[in-house]
Design a protein around this nucleic acid. Structure first.
Lengths: 96, 96
DNA sequence: GCTTAAGTTATCATATATGATAACAGGGGC
DNA sequence: GCCCCTGTTATCATATATGATAACTTAAGC
């Protein structure tokens, strides 16, 4: 029997309730999921997107990866979004 | 007679139409204006906000300044927003 | 089972954002 | 006029994001 952290995550995220908590928990996680989603919408692989952005697939992976500890710059996110046909909008919403 | 770049900017931004073009032109500019706006809404000076964020007012100025060439990290913006009572929301909107 | 495609992880080099300090500019109040 | 408050700018040191390369995992296809 192998370790099952990945399995756990997969199953947990398949549960809509857990999913929501997961997204609420850390906005950074939500970002990664959105990035992946819009890239897939564009029908691109990490490698293809990397080429458009003149970088390498490993860097795209790092950007999308939930386990990543980096806090990307706005321009990185903006360029990523643009490359897959989206534009980034920022909104500041008052707390409560 | 003194150079009037600042005057020009002040007058230009006072014009609603120019204002809109200005904001459309570069999202980065819009960001700076929003940052200043939410800080003022919180009734804080740069120095007061700097203290909350455990940094210095010169760094806050750099962040807010339109002439700044930096592309801040998401965490920087998030922490700024939180400190003045807002939360940051990211939206990816399809082009056209 | 092998191969290929897609994504991950580790590592290092480089670029850039951030922190700190100091000096300066402008405005308002007195 | 002189302060004080607020924000700006320049500079340097440090932290961190990004780029590049290589090796690895996993799944899908045959």
């Amino acid at each position: 029997m192998r370790p099952s952290l990945k399995d756990f995550k997969k199953k947990a995220l398949a549960n809509p309730e857990v999913e929501k908590e997961y997204l609420d928990l850390a906005p950074a996680y939500a970002l990664r999921k959105q990035l992946i989603e819009i890239r897939k919408n564009a029908g691109l692989t990490q490698e293809e997107l990397a080429e458009i952005l003149h970088t390498k697939k490993s860097n795209i992976s790092r950007l999308e990866n939930v386990n990543s500890k980096i806090s990307p710059t706005l321009s990185t996110i903006e360029e990523y979004a643009k490359a897959v046909g989206y534009k980034l909008q920022l909104q500041f919403v008052p707390q409560h």
